[in-house]
């Protein structure tokens, strides 16, 4: 564990709390992509299969994994049931098969071992890299977003961004490299570039999140 990974994980936790806070206080999931949230459930379920295979990394690791699975399922429940009337499926129209199918094929090609758990792990890494697309698509279509929704997306971007110095640190301190995670992580962080540009130049200056026409 190093400071970059710890703060990355904390940013990931923060993103979930920000999202829950937005939904609970506004009693609305307007502007939130159910599809992105469903993809995160798929990501956590396929990546954390090792939970059920008795592989033990640490208490921290297991606790976080259980939290990510539990909270992502709870968010789906909130959108689907508790606040379903505030969810607009007509805005959330990104085709998830364009993300699922290529991620699965990449998982079959690039993995550390051709076993169920390793292929699923690779699949989850590739899927996570692109899972934000339906959410960014809503942003693109509406052209604007509530500040709190943008804080949520920013926290997610910071989480993946911080994993990059973590990998550099681990390369020098442990000599370990995880090429699949590194390549997917760099792509994932890159996808936030446009978003971050608007976020830093507008939202953090107190202006509304509005995409240039």
């Amino acid at each position: 564990m190093n400071i970059f990974r710890l703060f990355g994980d904390l940013a990931h936790l923060a993103s979930i709390f920000i999202l829950l806070h937005k939904v609970q206080t506004s009693r609305s999931c307007r502007g939130i992509s159910f599809k992105t949230q469903a993809l995160y459930v798929a990501v956590f379920m396929t990546r954390y299969l090792d939970l059920f295979l008795g592989t033990w990394v640490s208490f921290y690791n297991t606790l976080m994994k259980l939290f990510f699975i539990g909270s992502s399922c709870y968010i789906l429940y909130l959108i689907r049931f508790q606040f379903r009337t505030t969810y607009d499926p007509n805005l959330d129209t990104f085709r998830v098969e364009y993300l699922l199918v290529p991620s699965f094929i990449l998982g079959l090609i690039f993995n550390y071992e051709f076993t169920l758990t390793e292929v699923m792990w690779s699949f989850s890494i590739f899927l996570e890299a692109v899972a934000i697309f339906p959410q960014l698509f809503i942003l693109q279509r509406t052209g604007e977003a509530e500040a709190i929704t943008t804080h949520y997306i920013a926290a997610l971007g910071i989480y993946r961004g911080l994993y990059i110095p973590n990998w550099i640190y681990r390369y020098y301190s442990e000599g370990s490299v995880d090429p699949i995670a590194v390549v997917a992580g760099i792509v994932q962080t890159g996808l936030y570039a446009d978003f971050f540009y608007v976020y830093f130049t507008k939202v953090l200056q107190g202006q509304r999140f509005e995409l240039p026409a």
Partner: peptide, 10 residues
């Protein structure tokens, strides 16, 4: 060398 297995990152 084979990368980290078990995967210790989240």
């Amino acid at each position: 060398e084979k990368p980290v297995t078990p995967h210790d990152e989240l």
